[in-house]
Design a protein around this nucleic acid. Structure first.
Lengths: 231, 231
DNA sequence: TTGCGTTTTTGATATCGGTCAAGGTGGGGG
DNA sequence: CCCCCACCTTGACCGATATCAAAAACGCAA
């Protein structure tokens, strides 16, 4: 096992509570793939390549209307599973936001492995339930929050999910971080236009709530104000 | 086994593909509860009452902001599971839209049962994944569709989910059906106000796309037009 | 460094849907 | 049978956000 694998396993074990031995076994039936920022993950590679495990990087799951409107319906971080096990087709397409490494499985391989490892399937269920919860609270945001509430909620979520090094949650929310999203992608995540996102960022900066050292960098100056705005 | 149980099992077996024997066994460790329309399902009944299986009726899952804005984040139909197995707390509250019968389980009972029946847990995973897919396509609606697209999508989804008798999907979409939602609830589902919902309904009626024989009744006159509007 | 293409910001204006307000409607209980 | 109350519809108006347009900032490569 390379040091890289060790890192992956450790990272996942810490972040997700998944069992080391099973993960190593799972790793062995998958194929590594590198994806560069902006590149889509093609599912129809061979017969049916349906499931993947994120090792490093951030990817977006999106759905689009025919006329080009896009909505980001999920974001996959290291240790997250993406795709749709057990035969059904997934409606979302997957694109890397940063350079990423993933471990991909054919539908058949993954299915068989999961059947043989109920404990893994149980973990997968727990994670899917957690993802469903996150998705539902995002529905609240999309349906009922206004632009400034959306931006504040987004920045708080980012500061919880991202940190300077690896496994953020253990060290509390990040005060300063680098967004994996362009302004347009933030808009697609929040159901806004790029112009509205830009104006809200500018307003938060002018109000002294955040600093924006560069386009992708954010520093939260007044977390209390953000929490109040997020509602 | 009473005729009622038979009905339940048959209904679920047809609709969801769940296995008869396991469902009967599961039924035996749960407690039946009747809920009248408008009544909430209280989770903290005894120690931790966290999971339920809908037998009959329709229920809504909602989240709310402190200032009273509400978003419906899910709708549970017969054979659906609601609640949050395996310890985590669910953020959504559950209220019956129609008179309903559910089968409730304590967290511990359900957890233990699921551990002993990997096949059931597998089914639960499949359903949770399907629910996640539905939820994600609803995010697209909330974030990127306008009022008339939302209403058209909603009516089509209702016609797919509801039919005059039991298990709709097998008989194709319903042309005429009875909404389990008030206008306000439709608004909470679509991220609109009640006034906007009302105006859009009126417009569809005036355009000859639907008939509205009464407040809760809908007849789809021109399904093609609805499909075009839904985008 | 300079130049160019892309992304972001800023400004002006339009519009969709929200808000406020005033009837209308229907169904259940007295 | 009628009344009342909750629910729904309609109208007038307003404001937040989208749209359209242009300038500015950034990043990369020559």
């Amino acid at each position: 096992m390379s040091s890289c694998d060790t890192c992956v396993v450790r990272n996942r074990a810490i972040c997700s509570g998944l069992d080391d031995a099973e993960l190593v076994a799972l790793n062995n039936i998958g194929r590594r793939r590198n994806v560069t920022a902006g590149e889509p993950l093609i599912w129809e590679d061979d017969d049916s390549l349906l499931v993947a495990n994120v090792i490093e990087g951030v990817l977006k799951l999106t759905t689009s209307t025919e006329d080009g409107r896009e909505q980001i319906v999920g974001v996959a971080y290291p240790s997250d599973f993406i795709g749709r096990p057990f035969g059904q087709t997934s409606s979302a397409s997957v694109v890397a936001l940063t350079d990423a490494r993933v471990c991909v499985f054919s539908r058949n391989d993954f299915d068989r492995f999961a059947r043989d490892h109920p404990e893994l399937e149980h973990k997968l269920l727990e994670r899917t339930l957690a993802e469903l919860d996150r998705t539902r609270s995002w529905m609240m945001l999309l349906g009922r929050k206004n632009a400034s509430e959306k931006i504040a909620t987004f920045l708080l979520e980012m500061s919880d999910r991202l940190a300077d090094s690896g496994c953020s949650a253990a060290f509390g929310p990040a005060k300063r971080f680098s967004l994996p999203f362009s302004r347009q992608q933030v808009a697609d995540l929040l159901g806004l236009t790029i112009e509205t996102v830009s104006r809200q960022f500018t307003k938060l900066k002018n109000d002294g709530v955040v600093e924006l050292p560069s386009r992708r960098e954010v520093e939260i100056v007044n977390r209390g104000a953000l929490l109040a705005l997020a509602g």
